[in-house]
């Protein structure tokens, strides 16, 4: 564990907490894409299939449980909670997530390190995580009215990806045989998707104005 990896995990954790805070205390999920949250739930479910069979550390297992639990509970809140679900922007959040899942599954079947059930699903989770933010970014673009918590949530998620890239660079130079092309390319694509959002986020921060995306 290096400082970049820890910083990445902590920003990831913070992003989830910000979202849960919004849903729990304000009882609102306005501006949050259910499609993206469902995709994250699938990402964690397919990636952490090894939770019972492979043990790395208490930290790892605990974090996996947190990400699994939080992603599924966020989906539950948005779909079934009597007040929260009424604040969901159903009509704007129309991204077809099948269009993301099928290509990711096909790509995982074609490009992977080993052709085994767990390995292909693990690779699928990497590809899917790379594009899972897209419905959220589309919704953001459509609603235009971005509250602070939603903006911070996406900012923290992007920060998490940035720190992971630094972590990979650090590990590549400090650990022998640390080469993971699939993880790196999927991670890089994912981080690049945030570039546009980051640009406007910093612009609004610099000018001390509310975050607003161009139409």
């Amino acid at each position: 564990m290096n400082i970049f990896r820890l910083a990445g995990d902590m920003t990831h954790l913070a992003s989830v907490l910000v979202l849960l805070l919004k849903i729990h205390t304000i009882k609102s999920c306005a501006g949050v894409s259910l499609k993206t949250q469902e995709l994250y739930a699938i990402v964690f479910a397919t990636r952490y299939l090894d939770i019972l069979t492979s043990f790395v550390s208490i930290y790892n297992t605990l974090m996996k449980l947190i990400f699994l639990g939080s992603s599924f509970s966020i989906v539950w809140y948005m779909k079934y909670h009597k007040t929260v679900r009424r604040t969901y922007d159903r009509d704007q959040d129309t991204f077809r997530h099948w269009f993301l899942m099928l290509p990711c599954l096909l790509l995982a079947l074609l490009i992977h390190e080993k052709f085994t059930f767990f390995e292909v699903l693990w690779t699928f989770s990497l590809y899917l995580e790379a594009v899972a933010i897209l419905p959220q970014l589309v919704l953001l673009q459509r609603t235009r009215n971005i509250d602070n918590l939603t903006g911070q949530y996406i900012f923290l998620l992007g920060g998490y990806r940035g720190f992971y890239i630094l972590n990979w660079i650090y590990r590549y130079f400090t650990e022998p045989h640390y080469v993971h092309w699939i993880t790196w390319i999927a991670g890089l694509v994912q981080t690049l998707l945030y570039a546009d959002f980051f640009y406007y986020y910093f612009l609004s921060w610099k000018n001390n104005k509310k975050l607003q995306l161009p139409a």
């Binding site: 990896r5 995990d9 990831h12 090894d50 069979t53 492979s54 790395v56 550390s57 790892n60 974090m63 996996k64 990400f67 085994t116 767990f118 693990w122 992971y164 972590n167 045989h177 640390y178 993971h180 993880t183």
Partner: peptide, 10 residues
């Protein structure tokens, strides 16, 4: 072993 040792990231 199902997963190799380097799959220690989240």
């Amino acid at each position: 072993k199902l997963f190799d040792d380097t799959k220690d990231e989240l």
